[in-house]
Design a protein around this nucleic acid. Structure first.
Length: 257
DNA sequence: ATGGTTGATCCTCAA
């Protein structure tokens, strides 16, 4: 079983990329973030024609998340948003696929440390932590995939000095990431030997991708039950090289069975 | 040098 996550930065623009990538990488689960698309205009027909089912939580202009699966989704277990957390921004959707609880999350960017948006980011992360803790009590096999907008360590940053205590890299954000891990989750990418300087996002500006100046901010966190099945985790830079790419590229987890 | 680009919308905002 393969699970992947990809911030597509507008599904309208990136649908051809998603379909082309799925044709080459027929993963079982693909979590998408930043659909930037109103709920009713989701391109379900094109996705079904590619052999996938989908659940989504769309929003005009901003945010929006989806889970694409090859297998049927189990029952009525689809949950949108963070239960109990009032949020106008549509950033979370959860579903159960092949016995795995899949939570797809688009974490708040936060703009700058100390800004109002940063305060929202930290409150949002606290709500996510509580939600995931509740889900873990019910689902031993759980994966939390998405754009975390957090680079967990300096080795996930092309220039740690330039980014020192900047948004995406600050101590409180990294502490929030560690609190999620402390619930019993592991960063799947770091379970395996990896080449240095592997990132999942590169700013569109200043030819950052060509110079490989990026951050690793897209992650797949998994429970012990899935860790026992984890066979590999890779960042696929290929779509970032395509014409008119998203600024993020997919991260893929392979499970045995 | 506080720069640069992209997407959605309506020209500025968010990333």
């Amino acid at each position: 079983m393969k699970l992947a996550t990809w911030n597509v930065n507008s599904l309208k623009v990136r649908l051809p990329h998603v379909l082309a990538w799925l044709a080459e990488n027929p993963v079982d689960v693909l979590c998408l973030q930043e659909l930037k698309m109103d709920h009713p205009v989701f391109p379900l027909a094109e996705i079904e024609a590619a052999g996938y089912r989908a659940v989504w939580y769309g929003q005009k202009t901003y945010n929006g998340v989806a889970i694409l699966t090859r297998a049927p989704l189990e029952g009525e277990a689809v949950v949108t948003g963070i239960p109990g957390f009032e949020d106008e921004q549509r950033r979370v959707i959860a579903a159960t696929v092949n016995g795995v609880r899949v939570i797809c999350a688009y974490v708040v960017n936060g703009e700058a440390v100390g800004s109002a948006k940063f305060e929202y980011k930290m409150a949002w992360l606290a709500a996510l932590e509580r939600y995931v803790a509740e889900e873990l009590a019910r689902h031993p096999a759980l994966a939390l995939l998405g754009d975390y907008n957090i680079a967990p360590e300096d080795r996930d940053v092309y220039d740690p000095e330039a980014w020192h205590e900047k948004v995406l890299c600050s101590t409180p954000e990294r502490a929030a990431f560690q609190r999620l891990c402390a619930l019993g989750l592991s960063d799947a990418f770091r379970l395996f030997n990896q080449e240095d300087k592997q990132y999942s996002w590169w700013d569109y500006r200043a030819m950052m991708f060509r110079r490989n100046l990026g951050l690793r901010i897209d992650h797949i966190l998994i429970t012990e039950a899935l860790k026992a099945r984890a066979a590999g985790c890779e960042i696929d830079r290929t779509p970032r090289k395509w014409e008119r790419p998203s600024d993020h590229t997919p991260v893929v987890l392979t499970l045995s069975q």
